[in-house]
Structure formats: structure tokens, C-alpha cells
């Protein structure tokens, strides 16, 4: 499983949704509330073995922005 699949898998598991795409934002995923955000952060930390600071979490407003934060931490997403 590549990192993009892993990431989409996290989104599916945390939000209990079907298809995930890079373009999805908080507004597209009704389950993406502040509470699930915590679950998302914890799941990302477990899966990618990174630490996400609150400031970085605040920027994660879409799937792509989540990828940006992870990329800064050395997680590579092949395009």
C-alpha cells in the first residue's frame, strides 16, 4: 500500500466514508468536525509515525492540505 492509499484508508476509517479524493475539503465530509479532527490527527500519527502540532492541525482543511503537512514531515506521496 503506498502512502496515498494509506492516507485515504485513514480517512475512510476515521470518517466512515467511501471514496476519498485529494480535492475533498472539510465541507465535503459532514463527519469532519472538530472531534473527528482529533481522531484524524491521532490516526495519522499512528500510521505515518509522525507528530503533528496543533498549529499544523489547524491548517488541515482539506485532504490535499493534510498531504502538505505530512509531506513537510518527510512522508512522500507519489503523484
Amino acid at each position: 500500500m503506498n502512502n496515498t492509499d494509506k492516507l485515504f484508508d485513514v480517512f475512510q476509517q476515521v470518517f466512515g466514508i467511501g471514496d476519498v479524493s485529494k480535492e475533498m475539503t472539510q465541507d465535503d465530509i459532514p463527519e469532519w468536525n472538530s472531534l473527528q479532527m482529533i481522531n484524524l490527527i491521532m490516526a495519522l500519527e499512528e500510521v505515518f509515525e509522525v507528530q503533528i502540532m496543533p498549529e499544523e492541525a489547524a491548517d488541515m482543511l482539506s485532504v490535499e492540505l493534510v498531504m502538505d503537512v505530512l509531506q513537510e514531515k518527510g512522508v512522500e506521496f507519489s503523484s
Binding site: 476509517q13 476515521v14 481522531n39 491521532m42 490516526a43 499512528e46
Partner: peptide, 8 residues
């Protein structure tokens, strides 16, 4: 407790 445990 791991979130994995809770979710899966």
C-alpha cells in the same frame, strides 16, 4: 490505548 483498537 491505541486509536486503531478503538476504530478497528
Amino acid at each position: 490505548v491505541k486509536l486503531r483498537d478503538l476504530l478497528s
